[in-house]
Nucleic acid binder design. Structure first.
Length: 276
DNA sequence: GGCTTATCCTGGGCGC
DNA sequence: TGCGCCCAGGATAAGC
């Protein structure tokens, strides 16, 4: 499932090959995938625009288009953006097709149909169309300091795992990298966020940055549905310490990796290394 | 305001 | 073989 490293990998992959290209035609195969405006308007408004830049905020991909219009994409759990030749056969889960002027097309595939696309009018902004963008927390790769984290956790009695998944605190972390960061910092996922010491928070901030940077360098994780914009799998899953390793031996202490449900999400951890 | 829970959605895995 | 159930999880609304 795409988290910050996977979204960033897609962004970097598309940036080199998509900027400068023009959208000629839009085909919507699943109306649910279009969040704004209506699917009919979406297909009518995008053609003629060219891509001028691609940025990222949390797990949102933000495409800046010509004439100051925009296109936003959230991959959610199983979304993929694939840049392919037009004559290549369609995948089973193709939802939206953006046909380009260079015999290629940008395809949005999404098995679970949770992912969404937004068109942003020239006189509007990404934040106006997607109000959630205004509520997103700090970007973990832009200088995540222990002091910042401490103030964010100060009044939070919820578990640290729950806090890390809260996009209003840190933007971009999901289940995989929250579990991996907590393992690296040796913190139990059920510890209330406001009970962490400054030393623990410092360790956690370091681990978050380390885990995310390493995952980006390895092209993300491909534990289930994710590939990059060329359909290539990431490699981080081979390096995961706890995620997806329930019942296996901890790489540090050798004890069995456990899992439990926290706020509806499976959390995987080592009960020995993450005792406190 | 903080926090948890239910909901959306679909394919894969498993048991019978 | 076929059926039914459970699980995975990001964002959001609803409820406490």
């Amino acid at each position: 499932m795409p988290e910050l490293p996977e979204v960033e990998t897609v962004r970097r992959g598309l940036l080199t090959s998509l900027v400068g290209e023009t959208i000629e035609r839009v085909e919507i195969l699943r109306r649910d995938s279009i969040a704004f405006p209506s699917p009919k308007e979406f297909a009518k408004l995008l053609p003629g625009h060219s891509f001028s830049n691609i940025s990222r905020r949390g797990k949102y991909l933000l495409f800046e288009l010509s004439n100051e219009a925009g296109l936003a994409v959230h991959l959610r759990m199983s979304g993929r953006l694939l840049l392919t030749d037009q004559d290549k056969g369609d995948g089973k889960f193709l939802r939206v097709r953006l046909v380009l002027n260079n015999r290629q097309e940008l395809r949005f595939e999404d098995m679970r149909v949770f992912g969404r696309l937004w068109y942003v009018h020239p006189r509007s902004s990404f934040e106006e169309v997607i109000p959630t963008l205004k509520t997103l927390g700090v970007e973990p790769l832009e200088g995540l300091s222990a002091q910042t984290l401490r103030s964010l956790f100060k009044n939070r009695s919820q578990s640290i795992k729950s806090a890390l998944l809260n996009q209003q605190i840190i933007a971009g972390l999901g289940n995989i990298y929250a579990d991996e960061s907590l393992f690296g910092a040796r913190i139990h996922p059920l510890r209330p966020a406001n009970t962490l010491t400054l030393a623990e928070i410092r360790g956690l901030a370091t681990e978050i940055e380390k885990v995310l940077s390493k995952a980006i360098a390895l092209g993300g994780s491909s534990l289930r549905d994710y590939t990059d914009s060329r359909g290539v799998n990431g490699n981080y899953q081979n390096d995961a310490s706890v995620y997806g390793r329930h019942g296996q031996s901890c790489r540090v202490c050798g004890n069995s990796i456990k899992s439990l449900r926290i706020v509806g999400r499976r959390s995987t951890f080592c009960p020995i290394c993450q005792e406190g």
